[in-house]
Design a protein around this nucleic acid. Structure first.
Length: 891
RNA sequence: GCGAAGUUAGCUCAGUGGUAGAGCACAUCCUUCACACGGAUGGGGUCAUAAGUUCGAAUCUUAUACUUCGUACCA
């Protein structure tokens, strides 16, 4: 036993327990269980993903909740899985193809072969993140792992599409969408990030067609001039009212275009005249529709100019064309001026390039159950934590727009719509398709292909990935599971996907699963680096959690991260904090090792509990409560901090130091028994309280301390939480508080004794003798413990002690403590020291006296506060007298 | 523009009206038989700024500054 290594080595232990938990089915949820249900669905990570700090934070929290729920006697389902992540996964495989020799594109392979290739890639590399989650110790029911495109899940997506289509909520239409020219697909509004960008504002002269003058127009996008179909001015703008209805010459790809009036134009901005380009700008499109203007599209799907009428620009990339078009205009003498300008540009979240507003045929969804979703959060039926996210959520729902759900991708759920072969071309070009066309027999919408597939062609597009993930809380469950575990209890996720995922799941829950998908949503902090930047691969500021696990252990990583994870704000990641987690694991291991060295506890003779024993058991009971409170409020850092300070400060630094003598040879066997018994009790309860956050080491120590065998050999993770009520059951409250007061006085006195030693520059290991003039009854046991804690040879109680002149003294709750130091005290230095302290203390006394002589304070402040102030003043006055007599003796 | 969150020790963060806290870092001391991934002691904060409410404000109110996030947009 004593040959256990001095330092805790996590890697072996962690792997051992992960294997054992799984082989014993500890994570498996039983829908038939009579126990109350607790359930959580994992936010499915991208199947292409690798674990990052955000995942660690997120999943550690979920694991704490799940493990604690098991200890509380609940049947727990933590349902894992991965997301097919359409764009990310497709891009990954396309990149692989591009690296081949010769390089290939998906078009070279064709749709079927390409999709097969992605599946192949997924089988080979897709499981990485799942393996990583297992290394972190996540107690998911791995037998129920789902994938958003597996055989069970995919038909659900098609079924939901079909149902919403029949209901008229899904339609195909020609609309302005966000177009990503690199990925060549439409994106939803949520996938576009408006980014302030430095650009240039060009002012260009548009000549009046009749040659009578010119109109100045300001634009940031001169490359789209060829698609201008009008110039608009505000109808209330007196500068231009005479021009309305006349025409100007479009400066590139010259043609006559009208000057129109539209109140969308701001009089004060730019020149007050706005070029109207309906094909390439959202608001221009609306102005165009209102005024029945033509739509001229001069961009290709990959963002190049498509305008044979302007050969200098035709075929050119959109950004190159911007510069070139200005050159052309300048050459024509039509460039008035160029200004530096900062505007907001929509950037694709996926490919990081500016998106193009583009008119195209896409599938849209009018969201179902918006009202129910808004109401659920507003009424508190679904609770958001931190609460302020409810406002963001409500705001989004108020301004909600139809969701563009089609993507021009191959990897994903293909849209379950088929067109009649003989009318396919016509149908695809139609500006609107809905349930009426299905009824007419022109299109077929269903979960399975039509019975006569040779007569139909399927829609080419795939669905937005989120259109499958929004079904995650229920489509992952079979009927039995749903009956037991839906709605789920908690959802733990990042606030960055509140719209993408959380809001949509709530709507889907009401529409398809008969009610809310979860009762609580906990939004985690976003993990940033020390400079406050988001962690990302490109910045290289994102540590690999597996490296951290190798260095500090999964338990250390979990504990360290939870200790700094605040609620409601971002967390700045500092590896030092993770090191703390590891150090803590080591401390725990050594405290357990210390216990193991002492051998079995015996109950004969009956244990003799002293104040320090009762004190630590009472603190343990308090810890039960603070842990329960913190978890009930989802305050994970409070939870972690309470566990940390109890163990390190209260148990190790105070209690263990105070009882060490009890374990040495020649000690009273009854006291020794009390100490061993107390250590066992504390460790047994404490390991259980700590287990949710540090599951591996607690499980290991639970076994090696022999607690497992006492519980029928079951692992800690499936053992119910020990009941705090059993602690101190034989004692009444007043006996407990008396013991606590004594222990607290002892620890306080020990501190002051150590202070004295340090003040007189006595080395820590120097054995000194203290003399105590007791103010309370101090028995031999207490005096011995004080001596031990103070690092001294002895503390002698002597009520009649007459201190020699200048003896260093401290006032403690147990009485006056003297440190006789014959020949060691420098009288001069001692006088200076005392004078300095006297000065300091006099200031405090003056302050306190002013406060206490203020009638407003004495009358209005609570009595306890006033009493406290008075007793503080008394202590100072006593010390003052002492110092004064010391000074008198020294001079 | 609008909205939200934040600003406390060198660093990372606690602290919701009653003597400013923890861990790390720093300084000095200690390898004493659980732990040097440890122990002991110490230095270090006008709690962003300003005004107000109060006997008393890090805490409540208002304004300002800065940081981060969300959202809306004017070419």
């Amino acid at each position: 036993m004593t040959e256990l290594p001095k330092a805790y080595e996590p890697s072996f232990v962690e792997e051992k327990w992960q294997t054992r938990w799984m082989s014993e089915g500890c994570f498996h949820a039983n829908p038939q269980s009579p126990k109350p249900a607790y359930s959580i669905v994992i936010p499915p990570p991208n199947v292409t993903g690798v674990l990052h700090m955000g995942h660690v934070l997120n999943n550690t929290i979920q694991d704490i909740l799940a493990r604690r729920a098991r200890q509380e006697g609940k049947e727990v389902l933590w349902l894992p899985g991965t997301d097919h992540a359409g764009i990310a996964t497709q891009a990954r495989v396309e990149k692989e193809l591009a690296r081949e020799n010769p390089p290939r594109t998906r078009y070279d392979l064709g749709r079927e072969a390409f999709v097969a290739r992605v599946w192949e890639w997924k089988e080979k590399h897709g499981g990485i993140i799942i393996k990583q989650l297992k290394k972190l110790g996540c107690s998911c029911d791995w037998e129920r792992e789902r994938f958003t495109m597996d055989d069970v899940y995919a038909p659900e997506v098609a079924r939901v599409f079909t149902e919403l289509f029949r209901e008229g909520l899904i339609y195909r239409g020609r609309r302005m969408v966000n177009w990503d020219p690199v990925l060549r697909t439409a994106l939803s509004d949520e996938e576009v990030i408006m980014t302030p960008t430095k650009s240039k504002l060009y002012t260009i002269r548009y000549k009046l067609a009749d040659g009578s003058g010119q109109l100045l127009v300001a634009t940031t996008r001169p490359e789209t001039i060829m698609a201008d179909v009008a110039v608009a001015v505000n109808p209330k703008d007196p500068r231009f009212s005479h021009l309305i209805g006349r025409t100007v010459i479009r400066p590139l790809c010259e043609a006559e275009i009208p000057i129109i009036a539209d109140d969308h134009v701001e009089i004060d901005f730019g020149t007050g005249a706005l070029k109207i380009t309906p094909a390439h700008d959202r608001t221009d499109f609306e102005v165009g529709m209102k005024n029945n203007l033509e739509i001229i599209d001069i961009l290709t799907p990959d963002g190049r100019i498509n305008c044979p009428g302007c050969p200098e620009l035709h075929g050119m990339d959109r950004f190159a064309a911007r510069d070139k078009s200005i050159e052309l205009i300048d050459a024509k003498g039509l460039l008035e001026k160029v200004e530096e300008y900062e505007n907001n540009v929509g950037i694709s979240q996926r490919s990081d390039v500016p998106i193009e507003p583009r008119l195209s045929m896409q599938w849209f969804l009018k969201y179902p159950c918006v009202k129910e979703a808004a109401e659920a959060v507003a009424s508190g039926d679904i609770v958001f934590r931190p609460a302020h996210w409810a406002k963001t959520y409500a705001h989004w729902l108020e301004g909600i727009q139809d969701w563009c759900i089609s993507r021009q991708l191959w990897w994903g759920h293909r849209i379950p719509v088929w067109y009649r072969k003989d009318k396919a071309a016509e149908l695809r070009g139609a500006t609107k398709l809905d349930e009426a066309d299905a009824e007419a027999g022109d299109i077929y919408v269903g979960v399975t292909p039509p019975a006569d597939p040779e007569n139909w062609v399927q829609d080419e597009d795939a669905l937005d990935t989120w259109f499958s993930s929004w079904l995650w809380p229920f489509s992952t469950m079979d009927e039995a599971c749903r009956a037991k575990f839906y709605p789920t209890s908690d959802l733990v996720t990042g606030p960055d996907i509140i719209f993408f995922w959380v809001a949509r799941m709530i709507m889907a829950g009401y529409r398809f699963a008969g009610g809310k998908p979860f009762s609580n949503v906990f939004f985690t902090s976003i993990v940033r680096d020390l400079k406050g930047r988001k962690m990302s691969k490109s910045l290289g500021n994102s540590p690999d959690p597996l490296d951290l696990i190798a260095k500090y252990g999964a338990d250390g990583l979990r504990f360290g991260l939870m200790r700094i994870a605040p609620t409601g704000t971002d967390v700045k990641f500092d590896e030092k904090q993770i090191e703390e987690g590891k150090n803590f694991a080591n401390k725990l291991y050594n405290a357990a090792r210390f216990r193991m060295m002492q051998g079995e506890a015996v109950t004969d003779p009956a244990p003799k509990f002293t104040a320090v024993h009762i004190d630590i058991l009472a603190k343990l009971k308090d810890l039960h409560k603070s842990v329960a409170d913190a978890l009930a409020k989802y305050e994970f850092n409070t939870y972690t901090q309470a566990l940390y300070s109890f163990f390190w400060n209260e148990y190790c630094s105070l209690f263990l130091e105070a009882v060490k003598n009890d374990l040495r040879e020649g000690s009273d066997p009854a006291v020794r028994n009390a100490t061993l018994f107390t250590m066992d009790t504390v460790l047994r309860h404490y390991l259980a309280l700590l287990a949710p956050i540090m599951p591996h080491i607690t499980e290991e120590l639970w076994e090696s301390l022999g607690f497992a065998s006492r519980h029928g050999g079951t692992p800690l993770m499936t053992t119910e939480l020990p009941c705090p009520d059993a602690l101190l059951s034989g004692l009444d409250d007043s006996a407990v508080s008396k013991a606590r007061a004594t222990a607290s006085a002892l620890y306080d006195a020990a501190n002051r004794a150590r202070n004295l030693k340090a003040e007189y520059n006595l080395a820590t290991n120097r054995k000194v003798r203290f003399i105590l003039k007791p103010a309370l009854p101090v028995d031999a046991d207490l005096a011995t413990r004080l001596a031990l804690l103070a690092g001294s040879q002895s503390v002698t109680c002597d009520a009649a002690f007459d201190a020699p002149k200048g003896t260093p003294t401290a006032i403690t709750p147990l009485g006056e403590l003297f440190l006789p130091l014959e020949g060691l005290v420098d009288v001069e230095a001692e006088r200076n020291r005392a004078a300095k302290e006297l000065e300091k203390i006099s200031k405090e006394i003056a302050k306190s006296q002013v406060k206490l002589s203020n009638p407003a304070f004495v009358d209005r402040a609570p009595a306890a506060v006033v009493d406290q102030e008075r007793s503080r003043l008394n202590d100072w006055l006593t010390r003052k007298t002492q110092l004064e007599s010391m000074l008198a003796a020294l001079s």
